[in-house]
Amino acid sequence: MPIDVSVVRKIAALARLRIEPSEEERYARELDGILGFVEQLQALDVSGIEPTSQVTAGERPALRPDEVCASDVRDEALAGAPERDGDYFKVPQVV
């Protein structure tokens, strides 16, 4: 399905990305080109093939034991926040 400006707007909204109206046309063109290129995968028969979502060889590591290890990053983290309200991170109202 060809990518047009309306699709760009839809996915930009999903991704919380502001795209300037002047740019929408160009993104649509570029995405359409790339998706056109990846169409070649449709030619391949992948029936019965397991998907690979990660490549992990070798022995499996153990899971983490349930033991508390306190971190000392809190103050640095809060100090680096764009906006804070006491010990909270502060953001505009969710409406």
Partner: peptide
Amino acid sequence: VRYGARRSEGDLRGMYEATRG
């Protein structure tokens, strides 16, 4: 929300889109 450069614009969604945009 927690780090980096924020651009505020109205409500939360506005902040998200402006910041990431």
